[in-house]
Simulated assay, not measured.
Amino acid sequence: MPVVSLPFRNAVITGACGGLGQALARELLAAGAQVALVGMNREVLEALAASAPGRCAIYTPDVADSVGMQALAADWIQRAGLPDLVIANAGVAGGYETAEAGDLAVMRRMLEINLLGPATTFQPFVVAARAQPKHRCALVGVASIAGWRGMPGNGAYCASKGGLIRYLESLRAECRGSGLSVHTVSPGYLRTALTAGNRFAMPGLMSPEDAAHALLAGVARGREHIVLPRRIGWLSRLLSCLPARWHDRLLRSQPRKPRVGEAGATAIPGLNPPPGP
């Protein structure tokens, strides 16, 4: 893995408990950065923080809670100053079936975390950065290849990530000419808890460590659109050239992602009440 010098000295990472979040935190901490670790599993965050005493702070708000995220930002800025990197990485995934009324709660919660979450994460730091126009900060949103096109049985996740991609496009346009840069990351399949229960082929499966390295290197180089790995982006674009009915037929023949309550499904924090299988 080529060594890339990271310019980041002050970072905020949401979803720091997950595979990609932990890998991002470890690489930034190894490079000497101060890191705000944001997640819902304090034990995991404490283990990460123990690797770099004095350079981390732990926060456990719901990323969809704007008041909680504003308090987090104010506390971190007071402790460490304005960040030069904010990564909105928190995300959840799960199968979705429109015919199941209980799955409407799944879609609502997924949109709260995957789409509203990045906005509530960025908002207080955008305000603070605009008050210091010379300050440079990279805002990174972790979307997904799944946001490029809808997939059967995965409507909630695809909608949340597709919406995130469009939100980041809008934010990028708003930030042109300022010290804020906006970066859209579209991973394919990463070897994490979110994909562990998948029952279908996952071409280009990537380790969280390799993904984190490529993500940070891409942002450091100023790339606004990052696909992990690159070849999965080309494959997705190639498939999109097929007539829609052929593409849909191909995807419908594949096993669907497990829904909440089914074997292999990942938990969605804050989902209340959880739907049955």
Rank of each mutant, 00 (worst) to 15 (best):
C137P: 01
I232M: 15
G18I: 00
V185D: 01
N89D: 11
P203L: 13
A263T: 13
K161V: 06
D65E: 10
R252P: 00
R230H: 12
P53D: 06
R109N: 06
A57Y: 01
T14A: 03
I87L: 12
S240T: 13
R149A: 10
F122W: 07
P203W: 12
E27W: 02
A36C: 11
V12E: 02
Q132F: 11
A31V: 02
G222M: 10
A74W: 08
G162S: 07
L164I: 08
R176N: 14
L85G: 01
T98V: 14
A131V: 07
G177P: 01
S5Y: 09
W148L: 15
N10E: 11
G177I: 14
A214R: 05
F200P: 00
I165H: 11
L215H: 04
V92N: 03
V227F: 13
R55H: 12
A25G: 01
N89I: 08
S170V: 15
G54K: 08
T121I: 09
A36W: 00
E262A: 12
W246H: 04
R130H: 14
L111E: 05
I232A: 15
S170L: 15
A33G: 00
G117Y: 01
S207V: 06
G270F: 07
G147Y: 00
E27Y: 05
V126I: 13
A131P: 00
R42Y: 01
P187I: 08
P7V: 12
P61G: 08
A173F: 13
E174P: 07
A131L: 14
L271K: 09
A88N: 06
P275I: 07
V44I: 13
A93P: 00
P243H: 11
Y157N: 06
A23G: 04
N198F: 13
I232Q: 09
V3I: 15
V35R: 02
N89G: 02
I58G: 06
A101G: 08
V126L: 11
G233V: 02
G147S: 09
R166N: 13
T14Q: 03
M151G: 08
R42M: 05
L48W: 00
L20V: 11
M206K: 04
Q123R: 15
L168F: 06
L250H: 12
D84E: 08
T14C: 04
E97M: 14
Y167M: 14
G39C: 11
G163I: 01
R79S: 10
N114R: 02
S160D: 03
L205S: 05
R230Q: 13
R26E: 02
D84M: 06
E43R: 15
R237P: 09
M1T: 14
V142A: 02
L111R: 04
L251Y: 07
G233F: 03
